[in-house]
C-alpha cells in the first residue's frame, strides 16, 4: 500500500517537474514532495504502522524515491539554468563591429622613434651614448677638428655665431673632442643631437636638424673595422640584403675619409628619381680620426687610432616614411604625429 503511494509520488513528481518553468516553481515542488511537510515525509510518518519486516523495505524504497526525485529536481534545475543562460546570452548579443573604447595611446616623435632604433643598434655593438652642448665654442666645433679660421671647409657649414668664439654647433663632431678630453681610450660612443646651420627653411632645408656622431678609439683600430662596423649598422637599419659602398671623400678631421652610400632601394642601382639617377643614396660621412685631432685631444696617435662617423637623422626618417617635406617634423600637427 505504502509502496504504491511512494511509486505514485515519484510519478506525480516526475510529471510535475517536467512542467516546472522557473526556479520558483521548482523550489515549490521540492517543498511539496520533499519538504518537512511534504508528501514523502507524510508517507514516512505512516511507517510506524508497518510490521518490522516491511519497515526496512519501505524505508529503503522511500530513500530510493527521495533520491530519484532529488535527481530529477537537479536535472530539471540544470536544464532550466541552461535555458535561462541561453536566453540571457541571446538577449545580450552585441554588434561587435561597433568601435572599441580605446585608451589614448601616445606616440614618439618620428625623429625620436627612428633615433631610438639607431641607439639600440649601437648599444648592441657596445657603444654608449654621449652628449655635448649645442651652444659651443669655436674651438670644439672647428679648431680642434682641424678646421682653422678661414678654412674653406667652413663655407659648407654656414654658422650661427653668438659672439665670435661662441656659436651654435654646426655638427655633432665637437662631442668627439669633448669625449676624448674626458675619457681615455678605449672609447666607443655615439652622440646624437641638434645641430644648426644658417639655411633658410624649405622642404629640404632647416636651420636646425639632428645628427648622430660616432667615435671609436683604441689600440689597433683599423679602417677595416670602420667598414665592418658601419656595414653592420646599415644592415641592421635597412635590412641584411642592403648593398653598401664606401667612396673616398674629404673631411678635415678624418684621414682617410669616406662617404657611405647604400644602393638605392627603389632601383637597385639602376638610377631612378629617388636616387637622382645615381643608383646610390648617401647615408653618412666617416673616416679614420685624423692624427692631428688625436694629438690635440692628448691621445698619442702612435699608440692609438680610431674612426668617426656622422649621419643626418632627418633624411633617414624622411626616406623611411616617404616624407617629402622636412617642415612637417617641426610643425607637429597631431594628424602627422599620430601616424608613427
Amino acid at each position: 500500500m505504502l509502496l504504491e503511494d511512494l511509486q505514485n509520488i515519484e510519478k506525480q513528481a516526475a510529471q510535475a517537474l517536467e512542467s516546472a518553468a522557473d526556479p520558483k516553481a521548482l523550489d515549490d515542488l521540492r517543498v511539496k514532495y520533499l519538504g518537512k511537510k511534504g508528501e514523502l515525509t507524510a508517507i514516512l510518518k505512516q511507517m510506524g504502522s508497518l510490521s518490522a519486516e516491511e519497515r526496512p523495505k519501505v524505508g529503503a524504497f522511500a530513500n530510493e524515491v527521495r533520491a530519484a526525485i532529488e535527481n530529477l529536481i537537479e536535472q530539471r534545475s540544470n536544464a532550466l539554468k541552461a535555458q535561462m543562460q541561453e536566453k540571457k546570452l541571446a538577449e545580450e548579443k552585441l554588434d561587435v563591429t561597433l568601435p572599441g573604447k580605446a585608451a589614448p595611446l601616445g606616440k614618439s616623435h618620428p625623429l625620436n622613434k627612428v633615433l631610438d632604433e639607431i641607439k639600440e643598434i649601437f648599444l648592441g655593438m657596445g657603444f654608449s651614448i654621449s652628449e655635448g652642448p649645442e651652444v659651443e665654442l669655436d674651438y670644439y666645433n672647428f679648431e680642434a677638428l682641424n678646421i682653422p679660421k678661414n678654412h674653406p671647409a667652413r663655407d659648407t657649414q654656414d654658422t650661427f655665431y653668438i659672439p665670435d668664439n661662441v656659436l651654435l654647433r654646426t655638427q655633432t663632431s665637437p662631442v668627439q673632442i669633448r669625449t676624448m678630453e674626458k675619457q681615455r681610450p678605449p672609447i666607443r660612443v655615439i652622440a646624437p643631437g641638434r645641430v644648426y646651420r644658417s639655411d633658410a627653411v624649405d622642404a629640404t632645408h632647416s636651420p636646425l636638424f639632428h645628427q648622430i656622431e660616432g667615435l671609436v678609439v683604441d689600440k689597433g683600430v683599423t679602417m677595416a673595422d670602420l667598414k665592418g662596423t658601419l656595414e653592420m649598422f646599415v644592415k641592421r637599419l635597412y635590412g641584411e640584403d642592403s648593398v653598401v659602398r664606401f667612396r673616398p671623400h674629404h673631411f678635415p678631421f678624418t684621414e682617410p675619409s669616406a662617404e657611405l652610400d647604400v644602393q638605392c632601394f627603389a632601383c637597385h642601382g639602376e638610377g631612378c628619381r629617388l636616387c637622382k639617377g645615381e643608383g646610390w643614396i648617401e647615408i653618412l660621412g666617416c673616416g679614420m680620426v685624423h692624427p692631428k685631432v688625436l694629438s690635440i685631444c692628448g691621445v698619442d696617435p702612435e699608440e692609438y687610432s680610431g674612426f668617426a662617423f656622422g649621419l643626418g637623422l632627418e633624411r633617414i626618417v624622411m626616406r623611411r616614411y616617404n616624407i617629402d617635406d622636412l617642415r612637417l617634423f617641426f610643425e607637429n600637427d597631431v594628424r602627422f604625429l599620430g601616424q608613427f
Binding site: 654608449s128 683604441d218 673616398p248
Partner: peptide, 16 residues
C-alpha cells in the same frame, strides 16, 4: 676602398 676588408672591432665593450 671596396677591397679593404670589413672586420669587427676587437675587444668587448658594455653599451648601456
Amino acid at each position: 676602398y671596396d677591397k679593404i676588408p670589413s672586420t669587427a672591432i676587437r675587444g668587448t665593450a658594455n653599451g648601456a
